[in-house]
């Protein structure tokens, strides 16, 4: 590790042990969150989410495709994440890293498990369905990509316009109906540093965290979880964080619902 980062890490760790975070933030508080809707009109849906200095962009595209052989009456949902080299000095170009694959798959699992999109509604005709692509672009990394990307994907889906399909052609312009969004899922990511746990870790905190736990839920139930990094959790900690995730997800849901541009 770079010596300067090591020094900073030890400082952050020492402060966290006393329950103190940068900018006086509470251990279970989010940084300021900002959502910008529909900033890319060429995409069927788009949104940018900022959590503190973390900035991610999601674009939604829909294409006509053949259905999966075992699900002939359902459309496809595909999520990809790009940790762009411009987002952090740590990121490099190249094939998707395990981190980016995990990120995309965890976001995807939350959205899928919560039934946000009814895949049957993406059926067009025998042998033809819509493929819905959720492409996640990480523009600036400062921790907690999981929550930022889930928020951005939810926001982008909520402003997505369904293209039409007429005479074998995709119609992407004109007066298009909105994609039907059936549920709102959000995720809360906690970092464990020593035996301290904090919500919404920033980049400095993620650099020194031992373990990470992401819990995605809707209003009533848990829809997805993912533990990351070697650090372990006790069952008591897990239960505490589940309670916290239900409490904090209310804020996130409010932010999404209130952010709607149209």
């Amino acid at each position: 590790m770079h010596p300067l980062r090591q020094v900073k890490g030890e400082y952050v760790k020492g402060m966290l042990a006393k329950g103190i975070r940068e900018e006086g933030r509470g251990i279970f508080n989010y940084r300021p969150i900002k959502i910008t809707h529909s900033l890319l009109p060429n995409a069927e849906g788009s949104a940018q989410v900022e959590i503190g200095n973390t900035k991610v962009l999601v674009g939604i595209k829909l294409d006509v495709a053949t259905p999966m052989p075992d699900k002939p009456d359902e459309g496809n949902l595909m999520s990809m994440a790009e940790l762009l080299p411009l987002a952090s000095p740590e990121y490099e170009s190249g094939p998707p890293s395990p981190d980016s694959i995990e990120l995309a798959r965890v976001v995807d699992r939350g959205i899928r498990a919560a039934g946000v999109i009814d895949l049957k509604s993406l059926f067009i005709e025998e042998g033809k369905v819509w493929s819905l692509f959720i492409d996640i672009y990480v523009l600036n990394y400062d921790g907690n990509l999981f929550d930022a990307c889930t928020l951005a994907a939810m926001a982008a889906l909520s402003n997505t316009r369904m293209p039409g399909y007429e005479d074998g052609k995709v119609v992407r312009e004109g007066n298009l109906a909105k994609l039907k969004v059936n549920n709102v899922v959000t995720s809360c990511t906690f970092a464990k540093v020593g035996d301290k746990m904090v919500l919404d870790p920033n980049g400095g905190e993620e650099a020194i965290m031992d373990g990470r736990l992401t819990i995605a839920n809707d209003e009533n139930v848990i829809r997805a979880m993912q533990k990351g990094l070697p650090g372990s959790f006790t069952e008591k900690e897990l239960e505490h964080l589940i309670d916290m995730s239900f409490e904090k997800s209310k804020e996130l849901r409010d932010i999404i619902v209130n952010s709607k541009s149209d």
């Binding site: 139930v221 848990i222 829809r223 979880m225 069952e235 897990l238 239960e239 589940i242 309670d243």
Partner: peptide, 30 residues
């Protein structure tokens, strides 16, 4: 919900989940 445990002190080493569960379900599952 796949889970890996270190039996010596019962710590949770791997935890993933997708679908629909309540907190009580997770307790029962553990």
């Amino acid at each position: 919900m796949p889970v890996a445990i270190g039996p010596r002190n019962g710590e949770i080493l791997l935890l993933q989940m997708d679908g629909t569960l309540t907190k009580q379900d997770i307790k029962e599952g553990m």
